[in-house]
Nucleic acid binder design. Structure first.
Lengths: 348, 348
DNA sequence: GGCCGGGACTTAAACGTTTAAGCCCATTAT
DNA sequence: ATAATGGGCTTAAACGTTTAAGTCCCGGCC
C-alpha cells in the first residue's frame, strides 16, 4: 500500500503539500496540484483512515449494539435499521461497528470499554428503557450518543422515537370506524416504557370515544407467542357482552398468537375478531388472513439517529434534539368485517 | 483520556516500560511492574486501539456487508449470523464493521475502498455465487477473507458452507418414509449456486430411491411469495397421477406461498400436500400448520468464519480451510399425515 | 532600492503506541 | 583484576497522517 510519502516522492513535493492538496487546504499552485493528483492516481494511493484517526483523535466509527432475540422470537426491524444507519453513516464517511450485548449485567462495561479505547466516536442505542443505565453512563461521561427510544423524561439527551401512542390511537380509531366497541389490548409488562406509551394511546383513544375500558381487556405479558395465545383464550371465556371483538397486540408475534388462538376456538379473524399487530414484519402480508399492523418508519429513524449523532460528534447540538415520528397503519384482512375467504381450524 | 505518557509519568518510568508491562513483553522487575499497574488502575488508562493499529498496521476490524432484502422478503438468519460473528470476534479482540452493499454494480468498489483505506483486516462474505466478483477481487489482491458459501470450485479460498444437498436429501428421505412418491421441488433460477446444490440433493435422493423425477415437478423461481403461489397452482392442475403429494421449497417464504396456495385450493397441508421449507425462520413454528423446515447451524457458521478469518489475518492458513456443515430437519405438522387439526380456507 | 505582503512551498512536531537498540550496573566466569 | 553476561531500564525511531510555523522568492509600494 502506497503512503503519502510515496506520493510526495513521485510528485516531487513534500508530504505536507500532498496533504494540502488532498484536503483542499493550504495554498497550492494549480501545476503542483495536478502533479500530486496524477501521482495519487498512478499509485492508487488512498489515505489510511487509521493514521488520520490518530491525528484527529477520532475513529469515524459509530457503535451500535443490540440484544439478540430469543430463538423463538424475531426482530423484524433489525436488518432495515442497521442498513439505513450504515447508509447514512457512509454518506458522511462514517462506519457502523456492530457488537453484541451479551448479558444485560455487564452491558455498561461493554460501552465503557469502547469509549475508553477510542474505538468509536459515538453510539446509537436502541431499546432504551426508563432510567436506562447506558443512557445514564453516557450522559455522565459526556460521550456522544443518540437513542432510538425515550428514557427518563428528566434527562436531556437526543433521541428519535416512533410515537407508539399515536400508532395505537390510529388502530383504535380504525376499529371504532368498523363498529367495534369492545377493544382489547395485549400489552407489555409495566416496566417497559415503550409498552407504557402504546398502552396510553389505547386508553386515550378509548376515552376520546367515550368508551369505558373493561379491566379484563388489558392483559400484560412478555413478548411471547404462547402468552398471547393464552391471553386470548382468557378473553374468549368472558361472557358475550364483555368479550372483545377486536384486539390490538403490541407485536406481530403476539398478534399471531391471538389469531391462532381465536382460529382454534372457531372464530373467523376479521368478522368475529379483528386483530391488529405492531411492526409490520415482512411476514404479516402472507399470514392467513393477512395481518393489519403498524409500520414504523425504520429507515427514517436509522437515517436520523445517525445524522444527529454525526452532528453531535462534530460539536454541534442536533436540531431538533428530540424527534417523534408517526407510524402508519397498514390495513389488511385481519380487520375486515367481510373478507371473502376465511381461514379457520377444521378438525379432521 | 489518559495516555501511556501519563501512566509513565505517574509510575516514574519511561513509556517503553509501561508498554512492556501491558504487553507482557520485555524484562521488567516485579516492583516496577506493580507500580505501573497501579498507575494504570488509578488513571483508568486504556490503550488507544487506533494508535496500536497504526503501529501494527492493522485495524482489528472485520468487514461484513450484505445486500438488503426487498421489503416483502425477509432474512431469517442475518441477526443470528451477525451476532455470532461479533461474539466470536470480540473473544479475539476484533470487531465487526457492518456496511451496506448498495447496488451490486459497484459492489467490488466498496470492498476496494475498505481494503485500500486500511479500514478492515479482512472480510466475511455471504451469498457468494459462482465466479463471484468479490471473491475474485480479494483473491487477486491477496486480501484475507472467508466466505459463507462456495463459489468457483477451481478457486482455492477458505469457506464455510451449509450442505444444502444433504439437507434436501434429508427432507426427501423424510417424505419417502411417510410414503410420498411424487415429490416436487420449488427451486431457484439456474444461476444460483446454492440453488444448484440443493436441487442436486433432491435429484440424488430421488434417484437413490429409484424414483424418476417428472420434469413438471421441478419449478425454478426467484425467491418471492407470489411465484411460489403460482407454481403451486400449476402443480395442482396436473392430472392426479402426476400431481405432487409433497413439495420441498428452498425457502420458508416460498413454502408459505405453497401452503397458502394449496389451502386456497381446498387441500389440507400435511395429509393432502406435505410441505418442507428451508431456513427454519422463527415464524415457522407459528404458522398453521407449523412448517417442517431445514435449520442451518448459523451460529456455528458465524463462529467458524470469524475464527478462520482471524487465523488468516494472523498469517496462518486456517485448517481445515473448507468446512461443510449439515443442516437439521425440524419436523412439524406440515409433513404429518394425520394432524389432529387442520387449517383450511373457508368461503364465507 | 529597500521594505512589506503574500503566494507557494518545506520543515518538523504531534497524535499514542510498539520495539529495536543502547546504556548502566551487578553478577559471574576466566 | 578484567572481561563477558544479562537483567532492567531508557532512548529514539517508526507507523501515516495533519498542520502550525518557517522559508523563500517575487511583485508592488513608498
Amino acid at each position: 500500500m502506497p503512503t503519502i510519502k510515496d506520493v510526495a516522492r513521485r510528485a516531487g513535493v513534500s508530504v505536507a503539500t500532498v496533504s494540502y492538496v488532498l484536503n483542499n487546504t493550504g495554498t497550492v499552485s494549480e501545476a503542483t496540484r495536478q502533479r500530486v493528483l496524477k501521482a495519487v492516481e498512478e499509485l492508487g494511493y488512498r489515505p489510511s483512515v487509521i493514521a488520520r484517526g490518530l491525528q484527529a483523535r477520532e475513529s469515524r466509527m459509530i457503535g451500535y449494539s443490540w440484544q439478540p432475540m430469543p430463538p423463538d422470537q424475531f426482530n423484524p426491524i433489525l436488518e432495515k435499521f442497521i442498513h439505513s444507519m450504515a447508509e447514512a453513516a457512509a454518506r458522511h464517511g462514517y462506519h457502523v461497528l456492530a457488537y453484541p450485548c451479551r448479558t444485560p449485567a455487564n452491558e455498561v462495561d461493554v460501552y465503557r470499554e469502547m469509549v475508553e479505547s477510542d474505538r468509536v466516536d459515538g453510539f446509537i442505542l436502541t431499546n432504551t428503557n426508563l432510567d436506562d443505565p447506558r443512557v445514564r453512563y453516557l450522559l455522565d461521561v459526556g460521550f456522544p450518543f443518540v437513542a432510538f427510544g425515550r428514557s427518563n423524561p428528566d434527562w436531556d439527551f437526543p433521541w428519535v422515537d416512533v410515537d407508539g401512542a399515536d400508532g395505537v390511537r390510529q388502530a383504535v380509531n380504525h376499529l371504532l370506524e368498523l363498529g367495534h366497541r369492545r377493544i382489547a389490548c395485549l400489552a407489555w409488562p409495566k416496566d417497559s416504557l415503550t409498552g407504557q406509551y402504546r398502552l396510553q394511546g389505547y386508553r386515550e383513544a378509548m376515552a376520546d370515544a367515550g368508551l369505558e375500558v373493561d379491566p379484563a381487556w388489558v392483559i400484560r405479558t412478555e413478548n411471547y407467542y404462547r402468552h398471547a395465545y393464552r391471553a386470548t383464550q382468557r378473553w374468549l371465556t368472558l361472557p358475550p357482552d364483555r368479550r372483545p371483538t377486536a384486539v390490538i397486540a403490541l407485536t406481530d408475534l403476539m398478534a399471531i398468537g391471538v389469531m391462532n388462538a381465536a382460529a382454534d376456538a372457531g372464530l373467523r379473524i376479521g368478522p368475529d375478531l379483528a386483530v391488529v399487530g405492531f411492526d409490520d414484519a415482512p411476514i404479516t402480508g402472507y399470514l392467513r388472513p393477512p395481518l393489519t399492523s403498524l409500520r414504523q418508519p425504520i429507515a427514517e429513524v436509522g437515517e436520523r439517529v445517525v445524522t444527529m449523532l454525526i452532528d453531535l460528534v462534530q460539536g454541534q447540538r442536533p436540531d431538533p434534539a428530540q424527534v417523534l415520528l408517526k407510524p402508519r397503519l397498514i390495513i389488511r384482512d385481519s380487520t375486515r368485517l367481510s373478507a371473502c375467504t376465511q381461514y379457520v381450524t377444521r378438525n379432521t
